[in-house]
Design a protein around this nucleic acid. Structure first.
Lengths: 156, 156
DNA sequence: TGTCTATTGACTATCTTTGACCTAAAAATT
DNA sequence: AATTTTTAGGTCAAAGATAGTCAATAGACA
């Protein structure tokens, strides 16, 4: 297994153990895994970003640390965040898929709806010969539109 | 036997062994068969495409892999997929035949029905002097129409 | 013998890992 | 209190490890 995957699993195990929060020392962790300290930052950036449902804070200097928090948000908070802040004028397929997965993780959409959304913004559907820039712009609009409809129905 | 056939068999053996899923390393497999790594992609494209009932995912970089999943779908799921997603406005004869074969493989149509459908969209039937583009468009419509009738009768 | 299928290899894209250099905060020193 | 030193964590670009694409070539088969 990849080093980055091992580190990811290690952190996730710590997170599930007890609370939704862990604190760790970058250098210690790096030494434990026998890797460069910056490897830890790589793992944080690629697996514990806000898109993945986590927040991180840190401090340098003596007694420094990295704290990772699993975010808990209400459905509507999450939707509003995505619509108003996260998604701007452009969204790549990878980002879109990640966001959609998160919605499923949080039971905001069903498995079928997830697949449907993925199909809508996927490369198969958007496989027309226009520049990526335009596809990404279109994807952003489509995503926001879909999210709005979800937000609307959730108003109950 | 052709190299690509050997590779196909090899992968299918791995798939039937246990689960409906295998993971492999492109370079290792290529080395095992003493061929160019891209040959693996060729086999995947020509024998493990969605049309053939498989899905593939992969990752590049260190620890990269290719995962092949045999898709299990209900008859109606398959039909709906073909009608709404797979077949667009155009369908070549080869594609059509492949899809029809798959329907037979999955016992969605009988052998006789398969031959009937193949006959309907085949070159003998459509051997009139119009451009391929138009034939393909017509074929797509014919296929969807036939599939709809199958879907309807399966409603039971 | 011409057309379809298979094979290869050069080039490209993407993901991971590392290391050199940078910055911030705390601790020690003056 | 100000300054220096030490102790963290942050950034970024380069190197390494895979997989993907495509066009040219070779081979098989009707």
């Amino acid at each position: 297994m990849r080093l980055s995957d091992s580190i990811e699993n290690f952190i996730k195990a710590m997170l599930s153990d007890d609370s939704a929060e862990v604190e760790l020392k970058r250098n210690e962790l790096a030494e434990y895994f026998g890797c460069a300290p910056s490897q830890i930052n790589y793992v944080l950036a690629t697996r514990f970003s806000p898109d993945h449902g986590y927040l991180t804070e840190s401090r340098r200097g003596g007694g420094g640390y990295i704290r990772i928090v699993r975010v808990v948000q209400s459905d509507s908070q999450r939707l509003m965040y995505l619509i108003n802040e996260r998604i701007g004028d452009s969204l790549s397929e990878e980002e879109a898929l990640r966001l959609i997965s998160q919605l499923k993780e949080h039971s905001i959409v069903s498995e079928k709806e997830r697949d449907l959304m993925a199909a809508a913004i996927g490369s198969r559907a958007m496989g027309i010969p226009i520049p990526d820039t335009m596809k990404n712009a279109m994807r952003a609009r489509m995503m926001k539109s879909m999210l709005m409809s979800i937000a609307a129905r959730n108003k109950s």
